[in-house]
């Protein structure tokens, strides 16, 4: 039995500790907002925050999260920056199918926490691990800037 701190609550997990957090969250805890896209740290759909850092939960074993603070998309709105990001996402109509957006929002929130006024290059670096097959990248970029209060200057 492993105990994990997820979204401010403690959860007992009865799974082998090498189980990726992704599946512990989705299948065991029932937090399905964190998505499966590749299972190989290639798409970012499964991004969560571990002690405030964005990590790919599909390659992070349960054992690596013991004693750490896990925050998922379901609770990121309780964070002031996460909430701003969600609001900007809605205001600009970012989601299409929406499936990748949990991961995008987790990555974007982590970015703004580190760099409150990111440059385009910062956005590229922080967000290029997150694939959106629907192609919402231009709106994601604009929404990050809107959340950061950056006036959009088109080159």
């Amino acid at each position: 039995m492993t105990t994990l701190n997820i979204n401010g609550k403690s959860h007992k997990i009865d799974l082998p500790t090498d189980t990726p957090l992704l599946w512990a969250l989705r299948d065991y805890v029932g937090l399905t907002g964190t998505k499966f896209g590749c299972g190989m740290s290639l798409c970012g759909a499964c991004t969560i925050h571990l002690d405030g850092q964005p990590v790919r939960s599909c390659v992070t074993p349960v054992s690596a999260a013991v004693g750490k603070v896990i925050v998922t998309i379901e609770a990121i709105g309780q964070d002031a920056i996460g909430k701003k990001i969600q609001e900007a996402w809605l205001a600009l109509g970012v989601p299409q199918c929406g499936y990748c957006q949990s991961g995008q929002i987790m990555a974007a929130t982590a970015l703004l926490k580190q760099k409150p006024e990111p440059t385009d290059a910062d956005i590229d670096t922080a967000m290029s691990g997150n694939i959106c097959r629907c192609g919402t990248y231009p709106r994601i970029r604009s929404a990050i800037k809107q959340a950061a209060g950056i006036k959009e200057i088109k080159p």
């Binding site: 937090l31 998505k35 998309i73 996402w89 809605l90 970012v94 989601p95 929406g98 957006q101």
Partner: peptide, 21 residues
């Protein structure tokens, strides 16, 4: 008109086929 499912999508509440339990 805002996306009907938009809020669910940005809060991790939207239910896709893979999310059924």
């Amino acid at each position: 008109t805002a996306l009907y499912d938009g809020k669910d999508m940005v809060t991790g509440q939207a239910q896709y086929g893979i999310d059924i339990h």
